[in-house]
Each structure stands twice: as structure tokens, then as C-alpha cells.
Design a protein around this nucleic acid. Structure first.
Lengths: 230, 230
DNA sequence: GGCGGTTGCTGAACGGTGTTAAGTTGTTGG
DNA sequence: CCAACAACTTAACACCGTTCAGCAACCGCC
């Protein structure tokens, strides 16, 4: 059965080659440069060949996103490892946040294909059953939530609802990155360093809101800024 | 000179008609449905005609974005008016935040064209000199910053750097909306009401971090969660 | 009144896109 | 040895943004 195995291997090989070419094109020229014909030309195959390995362009992008998700996960794991074994849960959470930002800065094209394309989330979430391994999208999210939960258990933070808290932190960083990458902050933050400062300030604001209070009555102050009219 | 004026009026009229058709197509079928040919068919003109009123598809989109920006601004002004004349600055700030979210929910297509398309910010920022009235993009941003500054002046909030603070609030809401609209929160927040709850929680976290503290030493706790290794 | 020039618009074309179906190889198994 | 199959190509289809020659209808002017 060595022959059929070699066939299988070669088949997987071409599939990987296609994905690699797609990844390169995306990184080099953005999403516009990612066309089926361009991929075909780069790997020196006919455009039709790609459709023997991917049902769709969407299918191909789905694989690209899945790849990028795993890549992001590695960023976060590495940040966790670099934070050291005696880092507190809150420190670990902050480290994963920075990893998210760093991933977006160092792999802008991947970040964009993950989050800019409408409907890509549904695509990755529900592939045809057993098509490919499911995405680590909310796997990593659950992981971050767990960090927050541990920080609460340790008395380090006071997050009313860790699930919400994780979402808030994610949204905060994601929004800042998104606005920065799309150029809407061009008039406010001029370069990457300034943006890092902004991220720092954002995290400070967030964690300061989550600090446990000695004064048991201090929490009531929140109502101050709550809107009364719906 | 009534004739040339009528000509001018008719010209502007067709321009407006084109924009209206584009707006409708965008709202109905998303960004994919917004093609020059589809616009032409809808207004019953030849595709080439559009190029007599807009240099580019980008130019057309730029106008669409400019429109949407003004629309968003109206949302925020209205929210401010509805908040009442005796609303505190912080309450006003929160109201504009909700207006931002409401705008995104009720005009998803407009929101997308404003923020999803790469490079649209630069397009709107620097149109050819005196092409059209400049965008209210960071006009509204400056306005929100001012609200925050006033809240600080009134002793209602303690925001170290209002400019950063406004960005953080913007990023937080924008990120949550962006993630929600792209479907990445589908597994965590199931419907619009849950999302509103999430927005509430996010705002609570944010403002809680900005509450002024009686205890002058409490602020030092922020360092607790700051990462030491770079 | 007729005429040159301008204006507003058309329709076809060009090169690009994703996608598919028929056709062409080369290999393999009975 | 030949039928079946797999991998791949080729050519087409329908769409896209964009351009440009041409064509009526109208303008001011002689």
C-alpha cells in the first residue's frame, strides 16, 4: 500500500502548497491580491486544479482562517510561557491581551482575513461535519475566561461576570486594533509606539475597573453614570 | 439664468439618485450587492453614466461614507438631546456611546461601509481639496473627548487622559459591535438583547475604572496587573 | 433659420474575477 | 490489453470596474 499512501501524501502536499501560496499572496498584497487565478499562476497549475482541493474560494479562505486561528493561539500560549510560571492569573490575562495585539500588528493580513470578512465566523464555526478540525475560536476564548475566573478566585480581580469580562477585554483590544488598522485613528495616534501607549492606557482603565475594593459601598457609585432614560 | 440653474439642479438630482440607489443596494444585499452595474440597472441608466458623476467606485463609496458619518452624528446629537438638559457630562458620554451602538444595530450596512472597508478612512480624511465638505469623523470624536473632559472637571470621573479615554471607550464599543456583527460572538451571545446586556456590562466596567477614588493610595494597585517583562 | 459646439448619455469593448464542465492525459487494476 | 480512474487542462460563462467612440438633443450665435 506504499503507492496509494504516496499518492495521498502528494495530494495533501499540493493542498498545502495552495494554502501556502494563498497565505503569501495575502500577506504581500492584501485581500485584493488573493485571487484563484493568482494562486494558480504562483503554484504553476491551472485555476481549475484548485477546485479539486477546495470546493470554493470561501472554503479556501476558511482553511486560511483556521490556520490563522491556530497561529493566534500559539502567540497567546507563548506569551503565557514568557510571563513565567509564577505570574498571577491577572498578569497572565494581560499577557494574552498583549499577545492578541502583537499578533494583529505582526500579521495584519491574517488578522484581517479572520475578522474583516463578513460571515467568516459562521464559515469556520460550522464546516460540513468532520470536514476539518473545528476552529479554536472560542476554545481560546474559554481559556481567557478561565484566567479571569482564576483571578477572581484569587481575590486579585473583582469581575462580576468573568464571561462578560473576557468579552469586554476582547472587544476593547479588538476595537482599538480594528480602528487603528483601518486608519480611523490616523489623526489621533500617529505611530505604532503611540498605539502601544494607547493599548496600555486601555488595559489600565479596564483592570482599574476590576480592582477589588476595600470599601464595600464604593461599588454603588457605578449607578452614577448609568443612563435612566431608555 | 433659470435654465442653467435647472440644469445644475437636475445634475445634482441624478447624483443624489445614484447615491440613493447605492444606499438601498447596500442596505438590501450588503457590500457584495453594491456594484456599478447594479446601480445603473436600478436607476435605469447606462453603467457609464455613473462615471459622469463619480470618478470611481471608491469616490462613490467615499460619498456614501460621508453620508453615513453625518447620520451617525445625528444619532449622537439626538441621544444627547434625549438625555435632557440636566444630564451630567458622564451621563451624556454614556448616552453617545449607546447612540453609537444603536446606529450600528439599526444601520449595519452603513456601519460596515464606514469601518470594514480598508483605506476608507484615508479616503474620507483627505479628499481632493475642496471636493466636498470634510468628514465629521474626528469632529464627533473631539466632541466626545470634550464630554469626558467636562466630566473630569466636574469631579464626576477620573480619567487620566481624556483623549485616551475617549479612544478607549470608542474602541471598546466598536470592538464589541464589530465582533458581534461579524458573528464571532455567536456562541457566546445569542441575540440582540444579550448583546445589549454585554454593552451595559462593558460600560459599567469602563466607568467603574474611571470613578474618582476617595482613597489616594488606591490608584497604586494598578501596577499589580501590569506586565513586567517586555 | 441654420449651424457649430457643447452636454448627457449609450453601448460596446477590455481585462479582470469566481466557477464549471468537457476533454486530455497517464497510471492502475482486473 | 483494455477499461476505469485520477489528475489536470482548456475553454467557456457570467459577472465585475472602467473607458471610450459615437450619438442624439440642446445651446448660443451668425
Amino acid at each position: 500500500m506504499g503507492i496509494t499512501e504516496r499518492r495521498e501524501r502528494e495530494r495533501e502536499n499540493l493542498r498545502a502548497t495552495i494554502l501556502e501560496a494563498a497565505r503569501e499572496l495575502m500577506s504581500e498584497g492584501g485581500m485584493d491580491a488573493l485571487s484563484m487565478r493568482a494562486i494558480a499562476k504562483r503554484i504553476e497549475y491551472s485555476p481549475g486544479t484548485i477546485y479539486l482541493y477546495f470546493r470554493d474560494k470561501d472554503d479556501l479562505i476558511r482553511s486560511l482562517v483556521s490556520e490563522a486561528m491556530n497561529f493566534l493561539l500559539r502567540y497567546m500560549r507563548r506569551a503565557l510561557a514568557e510571563a513565567g510560571p509564577d505570574a498571577t492569573p491577572a498578569q497572565q490575562h494581560r499577557a494574552t491581551g498583549y499577545a492578541y495585539v502583537r499578533f494583529a500588528m505582526e500579521n495584519t493580513a491574517h488578522f484581517r482575513v479572520m475578522f474583516d470578512i463578513p460571515g467568516v465566523a459562521q464559515m469556520v464555526d460550522c464546516p460540513e461535519p468532520s470536514e476539518h478540525e473545528s476552529m479554536p475560536d472560542h476554545e481560546s476564548f474559554e481559556f481567557v475566561t478561565e484566567l479571569l475566573r482564576r483571578a477572581v478566585a484569587a481575590g486579585e480581580l473583582d469581575v462580576p461576570e468573568p464571561r462578560h469580562g473576557a468579552l469586554v477585554a476582547w472587544g476593547l483590544l479588538h476595537g482599538l486594533i480594528s480602528l487603528y488598522l483601518s486608519g480611523h485613528l490616523a489623526h489621533v495616534v500617529e505611530n505604532a509606539e503611540q498605539f502601544e501607549g494607547l493599548v496600555d492606557a486601555a488595559m489600565d482603565s479596564l483592570y482599574r475597573g476590576w480592582l477589588p475594593r476595600e470599601d464595600p459601598f464604593a461599588g454603588a457609585g457605578t449607578a452614577l453614570v448609568k443612563e435612566e432614560a431608555s
